[in-house]
């Protein structure tokens, strides 16, 4: 980790249903280069909304998000260019069912980065080998297990060589015995110095891999600190209450 702020969030607000539901209320946060930030909190706390706002899959109703010092909430910014540098992994994998694994991984590099097919496939195969799925390169998503699908989803995002990886509850839809293999890939990624923002219910992962833990509730950041601080000595009553339930 160094001191460069990769994503700077300022006064972020998100309202649904014409302001009746306030999913995010004045959230401020900094994500530093090489940092692993884990966002935890009860359901409905706004943690997924927060993550999805970072690459504007959810349009904020207020506040600013600076990515590499550019305010991506500015209407004149082409968000598609910035999204290439922000990989995202979803709860339900969202692989493209009509394409092979290799097709899934090379589509964006070929069409968006102008890589040749051979070049993109070489990179994809290298990543597949790293996650132990090289033999499934020509399979279709429907032929894979949940854990395999999620590992593919991670390397698909990595094919674009992003500056940051956003994980939206990556293990919540998995059978328990498959959670480990996905977390293992994420751990490896963290050790390689990838900047990561992870929304998860895996407290073990948060504690072991996270550089910083953000606890959210009711659309606000209630408390943040090192895993040590949050898990062994939480300051806020709300944090204590939540941790008592999940630990």
């Amino acid at each position: 980790m160094n001191d460069k702020v990769l994503i700077h969030v300022e006064g972020l607000q998100k309202e649904f249903a014409k302001g009746e539901v306030k999913a995010l209320q004045n959230v401020d946060a900094d994500i530093h280069q090489g940092e692993v930030v884990v966002v935890i909190g009860p359901s409905g706390s706004g943690k997924s909304t927060f993550l999805r706002c970072l690459n504007l899959l959810e349009l904020p109703t207020g506040g600013s998000i600076y990515f590499n010092d550019v305010d991506i909430t500015d209407k004149s910014v082409d968000i598609n260019l910035h999204r290439r540098k922000m990989g995202m992994v979803f709860q339900h994998f969202n692989l493209f069912p009509h394409m092979t694994i290799l097709g899934n991984m090379t589509l964006a590099p070929i069409k968006l980065l102008g890589k040749s097919k051979a070049e993109a496939e070489e990179k994809a195969m290298e990543l597949l080998t790293r996650v132990g799925l090289a033999d499934r390169a020509n399979a279709y998503p429907s032929q894979l297990s949940g854990g395999q699908k999620q590992r593919i989803a991670i390397v698909r995002a990595l094919c674009m060589e992003p500056d940051v990886m956003l994980f939206d509850e990556p293990t919540s839809a998995l059978d328990p015995e498959m959670v480990g293999e996905v977390l293992e890939v994420m751990k490896e990624l963290a050790h390689e110095g990838m900047t990561m923002v992870v929304v998860t219910h895996e407290m073990g992962f948060a504690r072991e891999v996270g550089d910083r833990v953000i606890f959210m509730a009711d659309g606000m950041i209630v408390e943040e600190g090192t895993p040590e601080e949050i898990f062994t000595a939480p300051k806020q009553a709300r944090t204590k209450e939540f941790l008592a339930k999940v630990l």
Partner: peptide
């Protein structure tokens, strides 16, 4: 599924792509 749109957009594809 909307997830397919989101996956496409998150990779940097615009809506038409």
């Amino acid at each position: 599924d909307n997830g397919q749109f989101e996956a496409g957009r998150s990779l940097g594809f615009n809506y038409v792509q």
